[in-house]
Design a protein around this nucleic acid. Structure first.
Lengths: 252, 252
DNA sequence: ATCATAGTCGTCTGCCTGACGATAAACACT
DNA sequence: AGTGTTTATCGTCAGGCAGACGACTATGAT
C-alpha cells in the first residue's frame, strides 16, 4: 500500500491523567469539572490535546504541571526530587467515546504525595481530590448525601484501570514511596499500602519486611514524632525499583 | 476551551503487532518485510492504520487475522478455542518516529502456539518467524552470517517492550498456556517457560509447582509420547488466570 | 503517675522452594 | 531379550520467608 494521505482517517489524540494521592487514609484521584458540553458540569479526569510537536510523555507532563504544579519525576533522574511518578497507562479509542469526533486518548498514571488543594486554571471550585471509591460508585450517593454523577466519557473505566495498576504495582516495585514525602517513616509507608489496598497490615511484619528488603529504604538518621507516639526513624527511598520478593497483598 | 476543529492537530493512528510464539526452543516474533519507503526492504512489525469506525482492539484483531489467519481469543470467551491471546501493549507517539507524518501507534501483544509458516498478503518471502534475540541485536550478524539490519521505525523498542511484558506476565498469570496447543504436557509447558525466559528449569520442581497450583491445569485423561520417553499426561488450561503464588523466574 | 499511641525487636510455626535421589515407562539399539 | 537413553513423576530434606502475636520502648495527653 503506497503512501496516500487520504488513505487514513484523521484522529484527535489527547492525554488523560489519573493522578492519585493518599489523603486522610483514602486513595484519592484528581477530578476537574467540565465547563462545556459534552458532559458539562460533570467531573472528569484532567487532560488535553497532544500538540503537533510533542511526545506523548511530554504532553502528559505538561498537563500534570498545568493542573497540579507538579513536575514529573524523570525516571532517569537519580533521586527522589519531590516530583511525581508518571507513566503511561493505556490507550482508549472506542469510536464513540467522544460524541464530537474521533478521539484517541493515551491515559497516563501519576502518583503524588499529599498536596495542597488543587487548582484548575486557578479556579479551585473546578478541581478537587476525591476518594476513588466515591468517583467509581455508579449512581450512588456521596458522603454528603448528594447523588453522584458518574465521570464523563469513559473516564470511570480509565480511573479503574489506573487504580488497579497502582494496586498491583506497589506489590513488586518501590512505587509506594512516590506517595510519600521525600523523608517518611515506616508507619507512613504502611498507611500508603493500607489506603491503596484498602486493608489493614500488621505493623510488626510490615516493618520487618520493608526494612529487610535491600535497597528499598535508606535511613536518613533523623527521627520524627509527627504521628504521635514513640518517635520513628526517617527514611528515604533507596535505589531499588523492583522488590524481590514482592510485598504480598493479603488474600481477598 | 470551546470546541474548535482547528484547535488540535490531526494524527494518523496505527496498530502494530508483536506476535510471539515458541519454535524450536526459541522465542520468535513475526516480522514482515517492508515493500516501500521509508525503510524499504527492512524488516518491521506487522501493523496498519486504524479505520474510521474501528475500535483499537478490533483493528489489532483484524491485522492479526490478515497476517497470520489467527482469530483473536476473546478474553470473555469461556475456554481456549485455539485463538491467540491479544492485549494492548503500549502507545508510541514520538513526533519523529515516522518521517512522513505524525503517527501514533498503539502496539498490541499477541501470543500464539507454534504455527505453520506465516503469510503476508500471500507472499511467504515477505513474512517470517525470527528469534527475538536475532531481531533485537543491533548491527550484528545472524545465524547465516549475513549482517542484520535493525527493525524499521522504533519497532526494536516496541518488540523489546513486548518481550519484556511476556516474560513478566507468565510469572503471575497462566498466559504461558497461550503458547501451547489446546492439549499439552507439563514438559511442553516447561519448555515454553524455558524458551521465554531463556533459562533451564528443574523438571521435578516445575511439575510439582504447576500441578499443585489450583485451577492452572486440568487433566484431560489422555497421554502422549510425542516428546519421546515415558508417556506424559495431557492437560488443558484451567480457569485460573492469576497464579498465586506466582511462578518464580530464577535469579539472574 | 498513669494512660494512650505508635514504633521496634523477637519468637514460633507452617508453607513454599530449590536441590536432588529414585522409580517408571516408553524407544533405540545390539 | 537386554541395555542404554530419554522423559515423566514421586519423594525427601533443609533453608527461607510470611503470618500470628508477645514484649518492650519512647513519646504526648490527662
Amino acid at each position: 500500500m503506497p503512501y496516500d494521505p487520504s488513505a487514513f482517517p484523521p484522529f484527535a489524540v489527547t492525554v488523560d491523567l489519573v493522578v492519585l494521592t493518599v489523603r486522610r487514609h483514602a486513595l484519592c484521584a484528581l477530578a476537574v469539572r467540565r465547563g462545556e458540553p459534552p458532559f458539562q458540569g460533570r467531573w472528569a479526569l484532567p487532560g488535553g490535546f497532544v500538540r503537533a510537536d510533542e511526545d506523548l510523555s511530554q504532553a502528559a507532563a505538561r498537563e500534570l504541571a498545568e493542573e497540579t504544579g507538579l513536575r514529573a519525576h524523570d525516571p532517569s533522574a537519580p533521586a527522589q526530587d519531590n516530583g511525581a511518578h508518571l507513566e503511561q497507562l493505556a490507550t482508549y479509542g472506542d469510536p464513540k467515546r467522544d460524541p464530537r469526533m474521533r478521539v484517541v486518548s493515551v491515559a497516563h498514571l501519576a502518583l503524588a504525595p499529599d498536596l495542597p488543594a488543587p487548582r484548575a486554571g486557578g479556579d479551585a471550585s473546578n478541581a478537587r481530590w476525591a476518594p476513588v471509591e466515591e468517583l467509581l460508585q455508579q449512581g450512588g450517593y456521596g458522603r454528603d448525601g448528594e447523588p453522584v454523577a458518574p465521570l464523563a466519557f469513559d473516564h470511570a473505566q480509565i480511573l479503574a484501570d489506573g487504580v488497579e495498576r497502582a494496586r498491583s504495582k506497589i506489590e513488586y516495585s518501590s512505587l509506594a514511596t512516590a506517595f510519600c514525602t521525600p523523608e517518611f517513616t515506616v508507619g507512613e509507608l504502611r498507611r500508603v499500602y493500607e489506603a491503596v489496598w484498602g486493608v489493614a497490615l500488621d505493623p510488626r511484619n510490615f516493618h520487618r519486611k520493608v526494612t529487610g528488603t535491600p535497597g528499598f529504604l535508606v535511613p536518613t538518621g533523623g527521627t520524627t514524632t509527627r504521628q504521635g507516639g514513640r518517635p520513628a526513624q526517617l527514611f528515604r527511598a533507596g535505589g531499588a525499583t523492583l522488590l524481590n520478593p514482592p510485598m504480598l497483598r493479603p488474600e481477598v
